[in-house]
Design a protein around this nucleic acid. Structure first.
Lengths: 342, 342
DNA sequence: TTGGGCATCCAAAGCGCTTTGAAATAGATT
DNA sequence: AATCTATTTCAAAGCGCTTTGGATGCCCAA
């Protein structure tokens, strides 16, 4: 069923039917109702493609997911983020189109999306410290919002981020207040902006309290379970081991706990652990008292909010790029306790 | 830059330019080259929308991800599957469009995709035992391939699945051969077809060896870390505890190990564990000797293959729906050993 | 009766592409 | 030189929608 058929069926012109359906005022309420009902009855939906051609809008948002040719890693938070964003899109009649692409061809993809007029805007995932996508997107004039920030950016851009620095500052201070002086950090890849900011927060606490920074207590890598495990084993084997460990992801926190327990130690008593928790649906840190003490911020909710920012930007382009900083909660769980005295 | 401008620029008609770009034979190689170069130079890409309108193809595949309103769970394998499929799409000039949708409105989404002509086909994720989407898609005549199977389906349909029954049969037999007689199963939700098949494989082994089925050793639920942990704690507390545990996901296997170690036991010595491993990129079960003994099948590879099946089906619709059964490897790791004698 | 003002509705152009049916050109055959 | 056959190119229609710029009635004031 297409417009022509529908309007023939109703004995109206395509113009009138189109207007009736799209809520234009030049149509009497009676006909509008009649048209609506017929559309319903015949299950008529305008072709997105044709509509897009006629209006010049794509009614779609692009998500370009870089998969490094080096590490081949699909970000585990990606599913939840997408779920949040997807909700916002469907509520607004937008579609989400996804490109999985190795970082070599990433620029080509963005240019392609733009020149094929496939999307009205894109969201930028996993920004690095000095992300080339930001100047690129600005230069090709494709609306975008960054999930995270890029410290090296020289021009303004729209972003939504968690206050990673503050979160890790608070978490480290919390550990300090519990008496911990040897606090380790198991962080994400240092090329990622969020990892950089988290480290800054962590170091700020050390600095506040005149604790020297010990490189032996800092690791950075892809946040797998194994990485958490190995790093923890290594550090607990030091002559002067940490009494507390901060980690950037629930997944590596699982490895941290495993390492602790594998040494016959108890998490929360012998070694305290604080993790960042993206509130992933398949990694609930739940219970009445959460297992892990964590800096928590729902990545799903971030997806939802970011999508709405982007849609708003597209609906009425502003000169001023919007930004939004979310605060993470510090949730106290069972994985932290006073520093053991020895 | 659009076709009209490009062809004016070249002093050719739109017809010729279009044909040159799309590889039709009615164009001399000389002009084709000239056109190609100009297109390159001006970074010309045909508008997907316009092309779709003209050809009647959408050049897009839909993935509809159901999020149960009840459990709100984003499948952790989803990211990797999508990554595999995405590769196949971009290689073939297709786009992937993603809809996250609660199960109530799922039917409406499929009908919408069809009537808006937004996609040329869809992939069905997470089929249940008797999945209503299969008859629905058949009836609205939207090409699809199912990732998994639906035992209750009455008409043929295209699918790609791992041989879950065989995999779990083999894994259980492997444990049996090691002397295990009390083998537990921590499975996914029983409404999921794959869980059903895995149980069938597990039960077949018990049956082969005249071991009675003990409901106390079988759990089913959403495969979180916590679920693996709790189930294991519970079962190891039985008067007659299992000596081996099979589980349906790496994530719950992490919980299983944690439970084992929390009791001061050693995985692979006191309790053997076999897990199904989807080879998720952020949950590497790696090393020279993998940590977990597992039935392994890359879900990413499955995505790639399934996408290719669907594209082939769309390119030349066959009367006979294609099906593909992948065998899982049984990888022996450190988590299994002979049953302890006591 | 005339004409102005509203409320409705419509024909046709246009969005950027593909594809049909035909024309122009060049080379081969008689 | 005339005819025929490939080869190469083109004009125009059509895909399904929106939107511009009228038309058509109808009612009321003059």
């Amino acid at each position: 069923m297409n417009l022509k058929q529908l309007s023939k069926n109703l004995g109206l012109s395509q113009t009138t039917v189109s207007r009736a359906l799209n809520g234009y005022p030049e149509v009497s309420e009676a006909t509008r109702l009649r048209v609506r009902q017929a559309a319903e009855q015949f299950n008529y939906h305008p072709s997105t493609r044709a509509k897009g051609l006629a209006t010049g809008k794509a009614l779609a948002i692009g998500h370009v997911i870089p998969i490094s040719t080096k590490h081949e890693m699909v970000n585990p938070i990606f599913g939840d983020f997408i779920a949040g964003a997807g909700e916002a899109y469907s509520r607004n009649g937008y579609e989400m189109i996804l490109s999985i692409v190795d970082d070599a061809s990433e620029e080509a993809i963005y240019r392609g999306l733009k020149s094929r007029r496939a999307v009205d805007g894109v969201v930028v995932h996993g920004p690095t410290l000095d992300d080339p996508r930001i100047p690129l997107l600005n230069s090709i004039d494709l609306p975008f919002v960054v999930h995270g920030r890029s410290s090296g950016a020289t021009s303004p851009y729209a972003w939504l981020d968690v206050n990673n620095t503050r979160a890790f500052h608070r978490a480290a201070s919390f550990l300090y207040d519990l008496g911990h002086r040897r606090i380790a950090l198991i962080n994400g890849l240092e090329s990622m902006d969020f990892a950089h900011r988290r480290r800054a927060g962590y170091e700020a606490t050390l600095h506040d309290n005149a604790i020297p920074i010990d490189p032996a207590l800092m690791r950075s890598g892809e946040m797998t379970e194994e990485f958490g495990y190995q790093s923890t084993r290594d550090m607990l084997a030091l002559k002067n081991p940490p009494t507390a460990i901060m980690t950037s992801s629930m997944i590596s926190a699982l490895g941290v706990r495993r390492a602790i327990e594998s040494l016959g130690l108890v998490m929360g008593r012998d070694v305290s652990v604080v993790t960042h928790d993206d509130a992933l649906s398949y990694l609930r840190n739940g219970g009445d008292i959460p297992i892990y003490t964590s800096t928590r911020s729902s990545v799903r909710d971030a997806g939802r909010q970011l999508a709405e920012m982007l849609l708003a930007e597209i609906a009425n382009p502003t000169e001023q790029p919007q930004t939004r900083l979310l605060e993470a909660e510090l949730m106290v769980g069972q994985s932290t306790g006073p520093a053991p005295t020895r």
